[in-house]
Amino acid sequence: MTPVALVSVVEDDESVRESIESLIRAFGWEVLTFDSADAFLRSGAVHRTRCLISDVTMPGMSGLEMHALLLSQGSAPPTIFITAYPNAQDGSIARANGALAYLEKPVDSSVILEKVRQAIGKA
């Protein structure tokens, strides 16, 4: 039996985190949620994650900083960034570091699903 792909969601806003979790779960993927980059990094789920959805701006380590750390460790999964505060600099950094997407909140659920399918296909 093929294991179900794991999608990890790192988002400090509980309502956004729960909304994305419900969406991902409804399409049959396993999903784990974390309220901070640190919680995700300490979870042991990094190496199992086939797609990472991360907020950019969070208390403590930002999503971009977390992604850069994962890249430096050779363990960055395909990553979709979401943000309520889009700006050209963050978008450029995300794309330069190989992010699948840099999306403005509120994000259309069909766009998230398309990007998750793309990520899981690449992993």
Rank of each mutant, 00 (worst) to 15 (best):
R48Q: 13
G74K: 05
S54G: 00
L41R: 09
A101D: 11
N87K: 04
S109Q: 12
G98R: 03
G63F: 00
A99F: 06
A5C: 03
I112N: 09
L70F: 11
M61H: 02
A84M: 04
W29S: 07
D55I: 03
N87T: 10
R25T: 13
T57Y: 12
G98D: 01
F40C: 09
A68H: 13
N87L: 07
L32E: 14
E104I: 11
I80R: 02
L64M: 07
D35Y: 10
R42D: 14
G91I: 05
R117C: 04
E104H: 11
R42Q: 14
V31L: 02
P86F: 09
V107M: 01
S72C: 00
H47E: 15
G60D: 07
K115I: 03
Y85A: 07
L23R: 00
R17K: 07
A26I: 03
T2N: 13
S54K: 02
P59G: 11
A84H: 05
V107C: 09
M66Y: 10
V9W: 02
G91K: 01
E14P: 04
T79D: 06
E14K: 08
Q89D: 13
S92A: 15
A84T: 08
A99V: 10
Q118L: 14
I93V: 15
A5N: 06
I120R: 03
I82V: 15
L113I: 13
Y102W: 05
L100S: 08
L23A: 03
R95F: 12
R95I: 14
K122L: 13
D108V: 13
V116D: 06
I53L: 13
V9Q: 09
S109D: 12
R48L: 11
Q73H: 13
S109A: 10
E18A: 11
I24E: 03
A101E: 04
T83G: 01
L71A: 10
T2P: 15
E11I: 06
L32M: 13
E14G: 01
A88W: 11
T57A: 12
V107F: 05
E11L: 01
L113K: 11
T33E: 00
Q118Y: 10
L23M: 05
E114Y: 11
A26F: 12
V9T: 10
P3T: 14
W29I: 00
E65W: 03
A96S: 14
I93L: 12
L41A: 05
P59F: 01
V16W: 00
A76R: 02
A5Y: 02
V7C: 04
S72E: 12
T49M: 01
S54I: 06
G91R: 04
S22V: 06
I53H: 07
I112T: 10
A37I: 08
A123N: 12
V111G: 02
E114S: 15
E21V: 09
L6Y: 07
L52K: 08
F81S: 01
I112P: 08
S110T: 15
F27D: 14
I24P: 03
Y85P: 00
E14F: 07
L70Y: 07
V107I: 12
V31Q: 08
